[in-house]
């Protein structure tokens, strides 16, 4: 019932996705020439002596059908057939909404997937997340918030939302790091300067980088930071983690293990010392 009432909101988002697809195609065409976006006879262009100037937006622009042809004809990137299928699918559902009475029942998971696909198909992996981050970091409404606060409160909510909506496998298509791999806490996100945010963060969005057993770096999607780590077993019995940051934070269980590690080190030294004494004897 609620969903039926809110369908118009979802319809509006389809119209925006379609507009974004057209703008992306126009952006690509502009890298060849913006004149290709003009419809109508060339003899009507006011470019000869005695003609008055005319603004670009006063002309009829290219139709949606022709736009696809010009886009593929001038495209500098190599695209596969997936992008064409995506453009056509969104065009059809948008036309049903705009030109008729749509009987489609849209759902949010499907729409989130279409939005992320649009980013990735046109601009490659990571483009969704990088654009979302820049948008909020540059937004005047967020001027009072520091970057850590945005990452901890705004970004993480949207990142987790998208992941839940489209699922682990689809989500992974949109990132350069393998988000299907084991995830860890990020020390930067877990230990923000503003201690009030400390308890709010309970998300694992950091991944070993490069994806090898001897990886010594961890990359966090949320804050875009890389941190050096050590591959030593977590001293806490119930934790099987082997990724420790700065000898004090286990990035698997999220606990401060500095005391346990120091104790372990002391015991090891004691054993080594006793071995040395035995050797002397």
């Amino acid at each position: 019932m609620v969903w039926e009432y809110l369908q118009d909101k979802l319809n509006a988002s389809v119209v925006l996705i379609h507009q974004a697809i057209e703008a992306n195609m126009k952006s690509s065409i502009c890298s060849t020439s913006p004149y290709l976006l003009l419809e109508g006879k060339r003899v009507e262009w006011p470019v000869l002596p005695g003609h008055n100037d005319k603004r670009f937006d006063e002309f009829y622009s290219i139709s949606s059908e022709s736009l696809v042809y010009v886009f593929f004809a001038t495209a500098k990137n190599t695209y596969d057939t997936t992008i064409f299928g995506h453009i056509e699918y969104i065009r059809k559902i948008r036309n049903q909404i705009v030109h008729g009475i749509s009987r489609n029942r849209l759902n949010t998971s499907e729409l989130v997937a279409h939005i992320l696909d649009t980013y990735t198909l046109f601009d490659g992996k990571d483009s969704w997340w990088n654009n979302l981050r820049s948008y909020y970091l540059e937004h005047p409404f967020n001027e009072g918030m520091d970057q850590g606060e945005l990452e901890t409160v705004v970004f993480i909510e949207k990142l987790t939302y998208a992941w839940k909506k489209i699922g682990k496998s689809s989500f992974s298509k949109h990132f350069l790091v393998n988000t299907r791999a084991r995830s860890y806490f990020c020390p930067y996100c877990m230990l923000p300067e503003d201690k009030n945010l400390l308890k709010k963060y309970d998300y694992k969005w950091a991944f070993l980088f490069p994806e090898k057993e001897d990886a010594r770096l961890i990359h966090c999607i949320n804050c875009n930071n890389d941190n050096e780590i050590s591959r030593i077993p977590c001293p806490i019995d119930s934790c099987a983690g082997t990724v420790i940051w700065a000898e004090n934070l286990c990035l698997t269980c999220g606990k401060d293990v500095s005391n346990e590690l120091a104790e372990k080190k002391r015991r090891l030294n004691d054993i080594l010392e006793s071995l040395r004494i035995t050797d002397k004897k």
């Binding site: 952006s27 262009w45 006011p46 100037d53 670009f56 649009t118």
Partner: peptide
């Protein structure tokens, strides 16, 4: 005569990102 206010690649890219 001239066709003025020509859009750029960046203008459309910003529009696309804002819509999404």
């Amino acid at each position: 005569g001239m066709i003025t206010n020509l859009p750029s690649e960046l203008d459309y890219k910003l529009l696309a990102n804002s819509c999404l």
